Simulated assay, not measured.
Amino acid sequence: MSQLRCWASELGFSQIGVAGIDLSSAEAGLIDWLARGFHGEMHYMAQHGLKRARPAELVPGTVRVITARMNYLPAAMASDWQAVEWHRLSQPSAAAVSMYARGRDYHKVLRARLQTLAERLAGLLGPFGHRVFTDSAPVLEVELASRSGLGWRGKHTLLLSRQAGSTFFLGEIYVDVALPLSEPESAHCGSCRSCMDLCPTQAIVGERLVDARRCISYLTIEHAGAIPLEMRPLLGNRIYGCDDCQLACPWNKFAQPALVPDFDVRGVFRSPVLLDLWRWDEATFLRTTEGSPIRRIGFSRWQRNIAVALGNALRAGEDVAVREALHAWLAAPPAGVDLELVRPHVLWALDQA
């Protein structure tokens, strides 16, 4: 394992562990979460059923799971990054994009490096069966990571580490080799409820229990239709994802910078302004978000989200330029946009003045 950890560090991972595959104790919670409809329109969550809690059913022959975490906090972020992000959220004309999405798509970064790690291990042990995942299949990532000692599940459901807070991605390698197991880490949230109390939509409905239908990350990324009317004012200026539960978490004072340059902030997302992003056409959106996780939501959802944020800016006192931009859009919507989806959000935004 020492050699494996050395290779992982060389590849930009911050920590690795090894978990067993008996996740039966997690099945009841998964079943209840699905039964309560907390997965919203993420039908794939229910489609795969209990495969998430049964690694050997997903990949036959699996006996261990190598887990890995990779920091994503951009190296250039200020030491008081939490205060900087809170300030951004207080500026109605600013655009708030989740920190993890300001650089390269993590799926591409982690998958390639996990595959390299598996190949190096094969060179040491000989050929073995394996499969690499990073938020790309029915995998209980946080459950496996917590069992392998990478941290514990916080009350916001994200993995927390005493050494690095929660600003990291997770990845897994399912293997058919009985590697030695890592020791799990106990929870250290105590009586703290900061993430629960400061969630703008109160999506954390219980300790380690999130109703995705109320989560801003779900609404701005996974949700394909109209954003519910009662949720729109709560989105503020958040146009892609939400970091509030991480900003509120005391453990993130220990957040560590990324070890790879892939997660450096793209220039356009250093200090984005809502009206600047609103004026993009589809070609600009596609060109600017190439290689970014943002591209996956498409141009229409991107415009839907910004329209809501502009409406909230109007309510907060922004006026002439925002109204003009919204009226200009109604007069000449950009090519390629889903009018049925976006136009009602633009009309709603204008009603907020």
Rank of each mutant, 00 (worst) to 15 (best):
residue 351 D to W: 09
residue 174 Y to K: 05
residue 151 G to R: 11
residue 185 E to D: 04
residue 169 F to C: 01
residue 318 E to A: 10
residue 3 Q to K: 13
residue 101 A to M: 01
residue 141 E to W: 04
residue 212 A to W: 02
residue 260 V to D: 00
residue 115 Q to G: 13
residue 96 A to E: 06
residue 218 Y to T: 01
residue 215 C to H: 05
residue 238 R to E: 01
residue 301 R to Q: 14
residue 234 L to K: 15
residue 45 M to A: 15
residue 351 D to A: 15
residue 140 L to Y: 10
residue 44 Y to L: 04
residue 49 G to W: 00
residue 10 E to D: 15
residue 146 S to N: 10
residue 250 P to H: 11
residue 218 Y to H: 01
residue 21 I to H: 06
residue 165 G to Y: 04
residue 126 G to K: 12
residue 203 A to M: 06
residue 1 M to E: 10
residue 305 N to T: 03
residue 30 L to T: 04
residue 70 M to F: 11
residue 100 Y to H: 15
residue 247 L to A: 00
residue 113 R to I: 12
residue 298 G to Q: 08
residue 172 E to Y: 00
residue 326 L to P: 00
residue 10 E to S: 14
residue 183 E to P: 07
residue 221 I to A: 11
residue 210 V to Q: 07
residue 329 W to F: 15
residue 81 W to N: 07
residue 207 E to A: 15
residue 22 D to Y: 05
residue 258 A to N: 05
residue 197 D to K: 06
residue 65 V to W: 05
residue 245 C to I: 03
residue 303 Q to C: 10
residue 282 E to L: 00
residue 237 N to P: 04
residue 82 Q to N: 11
residue 179 L to A: 15
residue 83 A to E: 05
residue 231 M to H: 03
residue 85 E to T: 02
residue 313 A to P: 10
residue 210 V to N: 08
residue 192 C to W: 01
residue 328 A to D: 15
residue 36 R to H: 12
residue 12 G to M: 08
residue 199 C to R: 15
residue 22 D to V: 09
residue 254 F to E: 14
residue 201 T to E: 00
residue 269 F to C: 03
residue 230 E to S: 11
residue 343 R to T: 08
residue 69 R to A: 07
residue 249 C to F: 00
residue 22 D to H: 12
residue 193 R to M: 08
residue 330 L to P: 14
residue 232 R to D: 03
residue 265 V to Q: 07
residue 302 W to K: 09
residue 201 T to D: 00
residue 254 F to T: 14
residue 325 A to S: 15
residue 209 L to T: 13
residue 289 T to V: 03
residue 204 I to N: 01
residue 11 L to W: 05
residue 225 G to T: 06
residue 337 V to G: 10
